[in-house]
């Protein structure tokens, strides 16, 4: 994969996502807007080598964590780097196993994969953020063990997040179509197909 292309698209997706949030947000639970970074990650995951998809998940996750976005209906912006990347990584690991049965050059496949990857990433994100309420590394610095996030409700977060994932999957159809048109710029190269093609291993 050509990383320069990835970084340019990551930048464009992030600024469009943040910049147009007001324009295309649905009036549900304080506003639900689609995630273009998620669509980009799905596009990369369906075509790139597993290790490149994992790096893309980390980079996009960190960018999303750093972007000023309210994570609770009260407008609380929690600046913690890690939960989105971890969620994306787990989502990528599962999607890599599925890509053998998906027709990668179809926007519909992108939409379906966005649903899967987004839902898994959401579950991981909510789990990690909820866990912070009972466990952090605070005691190492003389702080409290748990640091609950004010106004955080996992159930509300899941509902809000699932609506966002569905909205993202719908947006993935046109955006995915455009991304597929840029396929030659990415130089993904040949990808193996069949069993084990999407295994992500470490170490």
């Amino acid at each position: 994969m050509r990383w320069l292309t990835f970084f340019i698209f990551a930048y464009l997706m992030l600024v469009v996502e943040v910049g147009l949030r007001t324009l295309w947000s649905l009036p549900i639970g304080g506003g639900v807007a689609p995630s273009l970074t998620l669509v980009l990650l799905v596009f990369v995951t369906l075509s790139a080598r597993p290790v490149h998809a994992a790096w893309a998940a980390i980079i996009l996750g960190v960018l999303v964590d750093l972007a000023p976005v309210a994570v609770t209906p009260q407008g609380l912006d929690v600046l913690i780097v890690g939960p989105t990347s971890m969620g994306y990584l787990i989502g990528v690991a599962v999607t890599l196993r599925l890509r053998g049965v998906l027709f990668r050059q179809s926007p519909i496949a992108l939409g379906i994969a966005s649903l899967v990857l987004g839902a898994i990433a959401l579950l991981m994100f909510v789990t990690l953020m909820s866990l912070r309420g009972v466990f952090t590394l605070g005691p190492l610095a003389g702080g409290p063990l748990g640091e609950p996030i004010p106004g955080w409700r996992a159930s509300a977060q899941l509902i809000h997040g699932f609506v966002q994932v569905i909205y993202t999957a719908l947006i993935a159809l046109p955006v995915g179509y455009l991304l597929l048109k840029t396929d030659p710029w990415w130089r993904f190269g040949p990808t193996k197909s069949g069993s084990g093609s999407g295994r992500l291993s470490f170490g």
Partner: peptide, 22 residues
């Protein structure tokens, strides 16, 4: 792959850092 593993471990630690350190 080792760099990837180390990055994931770092992210896991960053996720559970106290708010001030984060």
């Amino acid at each position: 792959r080792r760099a990837l593993t180390l990055t994931i471990v770092a992210l896991a630690i960053a996720t559970f850092l106290p708010t001030e350190s984060a």
